[in-house]
Structures are given as C-alpha cells and as structure tokens.
C-alpha cells in the first residue's frame, strides 16, 4: 500500500501551523515538523526545559550543553528567544498558552484518548512531559504511521496500552489520511488519492465518519 514517508507526514502537519503560533513538538519524530514550516510563516517553538524560540542544532563541535531541548539535544537560539524555569514552562503548557502540541503515538482512540508513553509494565517506566503536553494546548495533534510495524491499526476504538491522557487528541496526521476527532468519533478529512475508503477503513480500528467531501492528501516529495 502506498503511503507517506515520515517527512511527508511532518510536512503535512506543518501546513496547519499558523504564522506566530507557539508550538511544542514531542521528542523524536514530531521534531521533524519544524523543518517544513511554509515560507513566510514563523512558528515559535517551546521546549519543556525552559526555552521559547530555539532553532536548529548547531554544528558538531560547537554545542553548548547549557542550551539543549527536551530531548537533551543541543539547539541554537533564534532572535526573540526567552529562558524561564520549569514551573513557568509547564504553566505555558497547561495554561492554554500553546497553540499546538504535536506528539507521537502508540495508539489513538476515537474518543481522543492517547497512549504514547508506555508499552506495558516491563522495564523502567518513564513519562517525562508527555502527560502534561496533552493538556492545555489549544490543539493537540498526533503524527503517526497509520498502522504498527506488524500492520495493526494505531487508530483504535479504545486504547489497550497505558493512557497518556483522556480525550485529549483533536487531529491525527497519518501516513494515509488526516482525521479529526469530534464528539468521540474519527472524522475523515483527507486521504491519499489512490486509496479507497474501504481500504482505509480496513486498516483503521474504529469507524471513519465521512460527513462531507474528503480532500485528496497530496504531499510533495520532501
């Protein structure tokens, strides 16, 4: 089945970020979204460890280890950046000051529940800021492959893995489609043009509502 690359999913998510938006990108895959800001728009990126307005990684050898992001990676400062302590940082998160948070997922349920922090009781549990980031941003979006590596749906009726947050996700960008979560249901907005609704439904773990026209999900090679 044809599908979008991770870069293409990140590109699509970036198109919905407005000029001047304050944005938190989860560690890992979501960080790619920053690379695909449309020309003429500038978002301000927030990182949990107390920095607004960071830019790309510095060249190897010129890292300053007091200047890192939540993934402990070295970053640079953009004009207009600001530092603050951790309580202020999470006040920005929970206090509805961020416009968008974009996160990864193990599972997203049709009721908006998200599982993205734990695959079960084995090993050392670690949550970081995941449970905070799902609350407070005006939009909480997920970017993810549509199915797991084994081909199982990641968009499900109810999450089976430990929850990160309840009823928190508003939009999902997948390798096949763009889907909103409204009133506890998956609402299909865009799908790959070559993909039938039946085939998309077959790899989705809960019913897709199609209340109106479904736009073609067309993404350049990036």
């Amino acid at each position: 089945m044809e599908k979008l690359s991770n870069n293409q999913i990140a590109w699509r998510a970036a198109q919905d970020i407005a000029d001047g938006a304050y944005v938190n990108l989860g560690i890992g895959f979501p960080e790619k979204v920053a690379q695909f800001q449309p020309d003429g728009r500038e978002a301000i990126f927030h990182t949990e460890n107390g920095l607004l307005g960071f830019g790309q990684a510095p060249e190897a050898g010129s890292e300053d280890w007091d200047l890192i992001n939540a993934g402990k990676k070295a970053v640079t400062l953009k004009p207009g950046a600001a530092f603050f302590h951790h309580a202020d940082s999470f006040a920005m998160v929970r206090g509805s000051h961020l416009d968008v948070a974009i996160l990864g997922a193990y599972e997203v349920a049709e009721n908006g529940d998200l599982a993205n922090w734990s695959t079960g009781p084995k090993g050392v549990p670690a949550v970081g800021g995941a449970m905070d980031l799902v609350h407070g941003a005006k939009r909480v979006a997920v970017i993810t492959d549509h199915v797991t590596k084994k081909g199982q749906p990641k968009l499900v009726k109810r999450c089976s893995l430990p929850l990160t947050g309840v009823g928190c996700v508003t939009r999902v960008y997948t390798s096949l489609a763009v889907i909103d979560i409204e009133n506890g249901r998956f609402v299909l907005r865009e799908k790959l043009p070559g993909l039938s609704l039946e085939d998309l439904q077959a790899v989705t773990g809960a019913e897709l509502l199609v209340p109106g026209a479904v736009a073609d999900l067309v993404v350049p090679e990036v």
Binding site: H86, A87, S89, F90, V124, P125, V127, G128, G129, D132
Partner: peptide
C-alpha cells in the same frame, strides 16, 4: 522509584 509527570514534578516543587 516514584514516577511523576514532569510538569507535575515542577509544580509540586514550586
């Protein structure tokens, strides 16, 4: 180990 969400940890300390 007592695992605490990061924002909750910061606010509990504050």
């Amino acid at each position: 180990l007592e695992l605490v969400p990061q924002g909750t940890l910061a606010e509990r300390i504050r």
